[in-house]
Amino acid sequence: MKKIRDAINGVDLRRFRFLLQLFFFVLLVYGGYFAVNLGQSLPTFACGFNDAGRGGICYLLPLQHQLAMSWGTLFGWAGLMVLQGFLFFALWFFILNKGWCGYICPLGTIQDWITSLRTRLGVRYSRYTEGQFRRLSLIKYLLLALMILIPLGIGGALLPHDMGTPFCDICPGRMIIPMFTGDFSQLTIDFSTKTTMVMTALGMLVTGLFLAGAFFKKRFFCFFCPMSALHYLLSKPALLKLKKDGAKCTRCGDCYRVCDMEIREIADEVKEPRIMQDDCIMCLKCVAHCPEQGALKATFAGIPIFESTEQGFIKRMTKGHHDEHKPQ
């Protein structure tokens, strides 16, 4: 048992994550070709616009559709349907918590690939300043609110119908993910009405920003992701958890400096054991880069599954010291 535990805690997390992310990318982006259908309540960007290949659908698409029903329908029996969808979404989410972001989200995986490309080219990353970070962190809640209010407004005939699924319009996933199955049709500006024109143009802009941003900033888009905001609101009862034992922490900051999401609390907070913050993507890099035995750990239903250890840390860093060719 101890051997198995040591092997897990000493895992080469980078490699493990790469393989797992690749697996889920194939499952969600090409799964449709193999008759995979995980439903339409997935708590991750399995883009529904990827008609042919999708192995499931991102919950935000049906959610916006449903909320745009006329108020009479929505607040009647159809409301139950909406609740049912939300329930499935929540159940999926509870299993992995934000692990959906760090291990499954295809858009997140694409950003990690772009990061790999950057490090291979030897280009350094950029970081936000602390002030920028605090402000940017709020945008995702704003997007989440708009994503709910705009469809509701449409349903109440307060807003024009052609705003349809406003977040999908500006989501870079809609343009980028279908391209992986050879569908470039989303990469256009829709000139049918003024609203669609504005929204799709905005979408183009965001996609451009996404590609450029992700090149310089690790997980650039995740700071703004309304799905991440929705996740955080539900994260308390989730089964996968990130925990910290503050007494064992030396506040060396190793976890903070490897954090793609620049979450300072992971290093500085020593009182609250439930350490997961709203921006967290549960990639568990912090656990892998913590040299203190048991200071950080991921637990599933209360059982520790991956824990920081001195040996694991040394093993992973030694690999970095001796990897001759790859900077990452």
Partner: peptide, 14 residues
């Protein structure tokens, strides 16, 4: 001697 350095990207800046 106790504390050890963590590196995420093995580039000079990091």
């Amino acid at each position: 001697l106790y504390d050890m350095t963590a590196v995420d990207e093995w580039l000079l800046n990091d």
